[in-house]
Design a protein around this nucleic acid. Structure first.
Length: 245
DNA sequence: CACCAGGCCGTGC
DNA sequence: GCACGGCATGGT
């Protein structure tokens, strides 16, 4: 279950909770419970969510050839993948993520669900829609301990319509529109485009990746990671957290 | 006490 | 355009 833990709770999604014998998430108006990779094959929603159509084996082979660190990464996380998440959920999730750590982001995510989402099964709450958050006040958000991100969330709720139609745009144009939301900079935008729109050309640069790039790839251009920038980035992110640079 | 976490904003140059 | 301080919160 270790690798599944990295994929589901390692920082690309905050929807999943680890329970005694499974991982659970409220998505698509119901609770999903999974224990292993194969559990994703049984349900059409989870199949798409788990990105089963992408040719990961070809990508892994190519990425392994690049260098020793990426080779180790592929060995350590043999079934790593980029989840196909809901754009709205990724927008708010990654606003919450800034200058924050994964454990606390998850805590804030859950508070939003319990306070503003709806119960789809006893004790399980959906992530609130823009409409459910329509009447939220900035002071209510501050009480949930989102901190300085309160006004960013407010702006995101107001501008939620920006998310519609981004699929059709070029990466740069979509990024530009996302960055018109206060609190969405280049890094958060790249996470939304990657995890919410499956834009595999994204390369989110956070504090972990900065350390990896400085330590293992000094002077290298990002084009080094072509043609799988997002996957290389995700492998390196997992490695950085895994090996604790 | 310090420093850090899937950063960004506002200001000053 | 780039550098820098501030920012809420909780953990180490």
């Amino acid at each position: 279950m270790d690798e599944l833990r990295e994929i589901l709770t390692g920082g690309q999604s905050f929807s999943w909770s680890e329970e005694a014998d499974c991982f659970s998430a409220v998505l698509n108006e119901r609770v999903y419970r999974v224990k292993k990779e194969e559990d994703f094959y049984q349900d059409s929603f989870l199949k798409a969510y788990y990105d089963l159509d992408f040719d990961y084996s070809t990508a892994r082979a190519e990425i392994s050839k690049k260098d020793e660190l990426l080779k180790q990464a592929v060995e350590n996380f043999p079934t790593l993948r980029i989840l196909r998440q809901d754009p709205w959920i990724t927008l708010i999730s990654f606003i919450l993520s800034q200058n924050n750590n994964i454990k606390r982001i998850k805590g804030l995510y859950d508070k939003l669900c319990v306070n503003y989402g709806h119960e789809v099964e006893k004790g399980y709450y959906s992530f609130p829609t823009p409409k459910e958050l329509e009447r939220v006040t900035i002071s209510e958000l501050r009480e949930l301990k989102v901190g300085f991100r309160d006004r960013y969330i407010m702006d995101a709720i107001e501008k939620a319509d920006i998310l519609k139609g981004l699929e059709a745009l070029s990466y740069d144009e979509a990024e530009k529109r996302l960055m018109s939301i206060t609190g969405v900079g280049k890094k958060v935008a790249s996470c939304i485009l990657l995890f919410g729109y499956h834009r595999m050309e994204a390369f989110p640069i956070d504090v972990w990746i900065k350390k990896v790039l400085n330590t293992y790839y000094p002077g290298k251009e990002l084009s080094y990671f072509e043609p799988y920038p997002a996957l290389c980035q995700q492998y390196l992110f997992s490695m950085a957290r895994f090996i604790k640079l």
